[in-house]
Each structure stands twice: as structure tokens, then as C-alpha cells.
Amino acid sequence: MLITVTGGMGSGKTRFALKYAAQMSREGVYLSTGDHDSVIPELPSAHYRAIQVGNGPKLAEVVNQINRESNLFLADQRMLIVDSLTSWMAASFREATDLDLQRVETQQLLDALLSYQGKILIITNEMHGSLHPSEEERIFAARMASVNRILQSNAKQMFMLVSGLAIDLKALHLRYEDEG
């Protein structure tokens, strides 16, 4: 089951995600880049372990390794929390200057996240443009927005945080005028 939590910087995404994870699963893994706080936030229970991997390892490799080492029969009882997808994507984007390599790495990341066996909660940022973005910023924002759209279309639940308030977007059942 895929759950996404999105919002702007400082909106309370991590705090909400950890509290929500505690309601959904009594055990899990919290993957952190460590870029949001100097310490790992309080985890839902002693049955959660924190892995602060920084921006070094590729997220796809870490998720695939956790998936391989986990007991498939206990998949519904555990939660993997990824905090934050945006940080990993930005680090990967900075490392690879070749756009084709970036596309391949992005697809590998999406494949790993979407094939995860068990509950996965992905924390990401909403992409907002600046008045005069550089070409690199424009490409990154477009790629990150595309990844967010793919994740949202596969997510069972999707929350957006605004100033600490969580809005359940999937529950709103929004409809476009051209839909019948």
C-alpha cells in the first residue's frame, strides 16, 4: 500500500507521517536523508528502526535491499517511511549531469518504490517555480513534479500538509468538468 505525504518546506510533513504511521503499523523502517533536522524525530514505537543514510546511497538500492531482506508474510504489518524523496532526487540530480542517466535513475527509483512489498509512506515536496529559474531548476522541478504525479496516481492515500494541517486529497473525490 502506497501512501504519499506532500507539502511545502516546514509544513509538518514528517511529524504527520510518523504519527500516521503509528496508527497504520506497529513496526517499520524510517529512511532519512537527515537534511531536515540535526536529529532523527521521535519514532512511532520501539519497533521502528531509523536508518540515516544521507544523500550518498541511491534510494532505489536501499529500498530494494530492504524489500529483499524482509519477510514477505509480514509485509502488511510493517511500514517503510521515506523522508524525503525530494532530497534524494535533488542529490541524484546534482551527481549526474547526463540527462539520459538521470532519466534512467529516476525510472529505477520509481520501479523500486512502486514494487515495494508492504506499506510504504513517501514524504515529498510540492514543486513551486521561481520567477527566473535556471535551466537546471526548471528541469529538476519538472522531473520532480512528474514523479509526484506518478506516485499520486498509484497511491491509495494522499495527504497534503499546509501549516501543519493535513488534507486527505484522495477522500475529496475531485472531478474535472470534462469527466462524465
Results as ranks from 00 to 15, higher is better:
residue 144 M to R: 01
residue 16 F to T: 02
residue 46 A to P: 13
residue 51 I to S: 07
residue 63 V to A: 07
residue 44 P to S: 01
residue 83 D to I: 03
residue 15 R to M: 06
residue 123 I to A: 09
residue 14 T to L: 01
residue 34 G to V: 01
residue 15 R to A: 14
residue 2 L to P: 05
residue 26 R to V: 08
residue 14 T to E: 01
residue 3 I to T: 08
residue 81 I to P: 00
residue 3 I to P: 01
residue 52 Q to N: 13
residue 114 L to S: 10
residue 35 D to E: 13
residue 124 T to P: 03
residue 64 N to T: 11
residue 101 L to E: 15
residue 125 N to D: 11
residue 103 R to M: 12
residue 32 S to L: 01
residue 119 K to A: 04
residue 141 A to W: 06
residue 19 K to I: 05
residue 68 R to E: 15
residue 129 G to H: 14
residue 50 A to L: 05
residue 52 Q to D: 10
residue 47 H to Q: 14
residue 102 Q to F: 10
residue 45 S to W: 11
residue 62 V to F: 05
residue 70 S to A: 14
residue 95 E to P: 02
residue 130 S to Y: 14
residue 125 N to W: 06
residue 89 M to I: 06
residue 76 D to C: 11
residue 108 Q to K: 13
residue 70 S to L: 02
residue 126 E to M: 09
residue 106 T to C: 06
residue 115 S to F: 09
residue 74 L to C: 09
residue 92 S to I: 09
residue 107 Q to V: 11
residue 60 A to C: 08
residue 31 L to V: 05
residue 19 K to S: 12
residue 5 V to F: 04
residue 40 I to Q: 10
residue 26 R to N: 10
residue 91 A to T: 10
residue 6 T to E: 11
residue 133 P to Q: 11
residue 104 V to R: 13
residue 30 Y to R: 01
residue 103 R to Q: 14
residue 77 Q to Y: 11
residue 92 S to A: 14
residue 45 S to D: 09
residue 124 T to H: 10
residue 20 Y to I: 03
residue 65 Q to K: 11
residue 18 L to G: 01
residue 115 S to I: 09
residue 79 M to S: 01
residue 117 Q to R: 15
residue 114 L to W: 12
residue 16 F to M: 00
residue 111 D to I: 03
residue 35 D to C: 13
residue 22 A to E: 10
residue 122 I to F: 12
residue 129 G to E: 12
residue 111 D to L: 02
residue 99 L to Y: 14
residue 27 E to W: 08
residue 51 I to T: 10
residue 43 L to W: 13
residue 21 A to I: 03
residue 132 H to S: 15
residue 42 E to H: 04
residue 28 G to D: 00
residue 83 D to Y: 06
residue 93 F to I: 05
residue 94 R to K: 15
residue 83 D to N: 05
residue 77 Q to G: 08
residue 62 V to S: 00
residue 138 R to P: 08
residue 135 E to G: 11
residue 54 G to S: 04
residue 66 I to A: 02
residue 93 F to P: 02
residue 18 L to Q: 00
residue 91 A to P: 05
residue 75 A to V: 04
residue 125 N to L: 06
residue 50 A to V: 05
residue 87 S to P: 05
residue 94 R to N: 15
residue 132 H to N: 15
residue 103 R to G: 11
residue 22 A to G: 15
residue 12 G to N: 02
residue 135 E to W: 14
residue 117 Q to S: 12
residue 13 K to W: 09
residue 128 H to K: 04
residue 44 P to Q: 04
residue 11 S to L: 07
residue 45 S to M: 06
residue 37 D to W: 13
residue 4 T to Y: 03
residue 60 A to D: 08
residue 68 R to D: 15
residue 103 R to P: 07
residue 124 T to K: 03
residue 113 L to R: 01
residue 126 E to R: 08
residue 41 P to G: 07
residue 37 D to Y: 15
residue 78 R to C: 01
residue 138 R to T: 11
residue 131 L to P: 07
residue 19 K to E: 13
residue 67 N to M: 10
residue 14 T to P: 00
residue 70 S to D: 11
residue 59 L to N: 00
residue 74 L to H: 12
residue 6 T to C: 09
residue 51 I to D: 05
residue 133 P to A: 04
residue 33 T to S: 07
residue 47 H to A: 14
residue 25 S to Y: 04
residue 87 S to G: 14
